[in-house]
Amino acid sequence: MAREREGAERRSRGLAPFGTVPATTSARMSAQKRTNTTPEMLLRKQLHAKGLRYRVNMPIPGLPRRRADITFTRAKLAVFVDGCFWHRCPTHATDPATRGEWWRQKLDGNVARDRETDEHLRRLGWSVLRFWEHEDMEQAARVVAAAVSRSDR
């Protein structure tokens, strides 16, 4: 009861309750694009130019609230374009100074969820390709096209 009262008091002063994200941070995070990011659109454009057709933002079977950026259902190939910040790119990852422990847990959880998703798809017989947002999307399209081509044999 005291904790609820304390949470209500913090909210009335414009502060977030303990264990939650400040409202301004939550708003910024909610505004981040989840689909149709610039790198993803560049990759899709390259794939389309190569004559490849695919599904976008397809739900992953058996994993609620998870989606693949690009899928080739006949080839059973899932493609992800990961953002450097959100998925902890080894080259560009940064650690926010404010609320460092909360962010560490959040970002480590994203990476763990990525690995779990990859493993789940592989158990279902799918191949998984992941590219960082900073990678050359023309080269990524060549890698994807080769994987699709191999599956057609």
Rank of each mutant, 00 (worst) to 15 (best):
M1D: 12
A2I: 10
R3T: 12
R3A: 14
E4F: 07
R5E: 10
R5H: 10
R5L: 10
E6I: 13
G7Y: 04
A8C: 09
E9S: 12
R10P: 03
R11W: 02
R11P: 02
S12R: 15
G19T: 03
T20A: 05
V21A: 06
T24Y: 06
T25W: 02
R28A: 10
R28K: 13
S30Y: 01
A31H: 09
Q32V: 11
Q32A: 09
T35Q: 11
T35E: 11
T38C: 03
T38Q: 09
P39F: 03
P39A: 07
E40P: 01
M41W: 02
L43V: 05
L43C: 07
L43T: 01
R44F: 04
Q46C: 15
L47A: 02
L47F: 04
L47D: 00
L47T: 01
H48I: 03
K50Q: 15
K50W: 08
G51K: 11
G51I: 06
G51L: 06
L52Y: 09
L52V: 11
R53C: 07
M58D: 08
I60L: 02
I60S: 01
G62L: 10
L63P: 01
R65Y: 09
R65M: 07
R65F: 07
R67M: 04
D69M: 03
D69Q: 08
D69A: 07
T71L: 01
F72G: 00
F72W: 04
F72H: 00
T73I: 10
A75V: 06
A75C: 08
A75N: 04
L77M: 06
L77T: 00
F80M: 07
F80K: 00
G83K: 07
G83I: 06
C84V: 11
C84K: 05
C84T: 12
F85A: 09
W86D: 07
H87D: 05
R88I: 13
R88D: 13
R88Y: 05
P90V: 12
T91H: 13
A93Q: 15
T94Q: 15
A97S: 15
G100L: 03
G100N: 06
E101C: 02
W103E: 08
W103V: 05
L107D: 01
D108C: 06
D108V: 06
G109W: 02
G109P: 02
G109H: 05
N110Q: 11
A112T: 08
D114R: 04
R115L: 13
R115P: 01
E116P: 01
E116Q: 15
E119F: 06
E119I: 09
L121R: 00
R122Q: 15
L124S: 14
S127H: 12
S127A: 15
L129G: 03
R130H: 09
W132N: 02
E133F: 02
H134T: 06
E135I: 08
D136I: 05
M137I: 01
V143I: 12
V144P: 00
V144T: 02
A145R: 05
A147G: 07
A147D: 04
S149K: 13
S149F: 08
S151D: 09
D152A: 14
R153K: 09
R153F: 02
